[in-house]
Design a protein around this nucleic acid. Structure first.
Lengths: 110, 110
DNA sequence: TTATATACTTCGTGTGTCAAGGTATCTCTT
DNA sequence: AAGAGATACCTTGACACACGAAGTATATAA
């Protein structure tokens, strides 16, 4: 989409988990939601997105199931697990801490 | 040091440039300053640090010269170039933008 | 019928981080 | 005089995440 890319690295999982906190969703929709919420400033690359799903499922933080669409392409839905919710809380705290840390390191006066 | 690690990825260069905005410095000291400023929450691994220096010098954002220490280990000092200062301004803006973006994506209610 | 949107997947590559190892000098303690 | 610890730098190889590119398949709008 624009600038950002490497700066997000490491936050992908947190972002995905965050969206799943509300409700189950599937890859394509999750990405559209991200685009929407960031006013089209950001969108995950498909490969990144699906890699993250596999990683999160591997970690036991999400579970997946096929939707029962009668029409259109099949959708693989994801649910966040209790462990995933706990992980999200941790990751969010880490984000807050990291944010403060970086802010403390970057000088104001330019 | 603690938690953080992957979350910083991509901000290393910005942090180093930020410290060089004040004054010239050398690897070891830069790392100590980071540790100090973050209350020992964070410190770059040496390999990461020196890799970053090479990358930044390659990009023309910093220049290096040997200090004239009469005693103790030799020190390679780094100076930020005008291009480096311009880059820093950009990187800091990108950080602010990324920060807002991620904040907008992470739900409050847990 | 062609293009576009929806939807998922896999493979190979690149970049940044880091563990581990190395070199060398100085100071403080024993 | 020997040894430990701090200071200071450097290189190599491995790993993880992100991503470009390509492929599959269905539905709809032009």
């Amino acid at each position: 989409m624009s600038i950002t890319a490497d700066l997000i690295r490491g936050h992908t999982d947190t972002i995905i988990l965050s969206l799943l906190m509300h409700q189950d969703s599937y890859g394509y929709q999750i990405n559209k939601t991200i685009a929407e919420k960031t006013h089209n400033q950001y969108e995950l690359k498909e490969a990144t997105l699906y890699t993250a799903f596999r990683r999160l499922e591997q970690a036991g933080w999400i579970r997946s199931y096929w939707g029962d669409e009668q029409t259109g392409a099949r959708r693989r839905y994801y649910t966040i697990t209790p462990e995933g919710r706990a992980a999200y809380v941790r990751l969010k705290q880490e984000w807050e801490q990291t944010k403060r840390m970086i802010d403390g390191l970057l000088v104001e006066e330019v």
